[in-house]
Amino acid sequence: MAIEYKKSLAVFSDFVGVEEAENLLEWLLKNPKGKINLAECGHIHAANLQVLMAVKPQIVAGSKDENLQLWLGML
């Protein structure tokens, strides 16, 4: 799993594909205070990106991938 859902934290790792988007949105809707950890994430599919943009969850750790962080830093 590219996203590991913990109690109130979703840990993204490696490449998060398009198929994760729906689950992610569901999880975020169920856990309105859910936080995101992107540290080990290399890329997220645009579908996930727009979920994050729409829900605007708190991001507790930015990605170690500099280029990705440049983009996600704005969230």
Binding site: E22, L25, L29, A47, L49, M53, A54, V55
Partner: peptide, 21 residues
């Protein structure tokens, strides 16, 4: 920069598989 044009009234109605970026 990335902009979302999400026009869904509520998050639950959002269609994650339609690009709104």
């Amino acid at each position: 920069n990335v902009i979302s044009t999400n026009d869904a009234s509520s998050l639950a109605e959002m269609d994650v598989y339609r690009s709104q970026l």
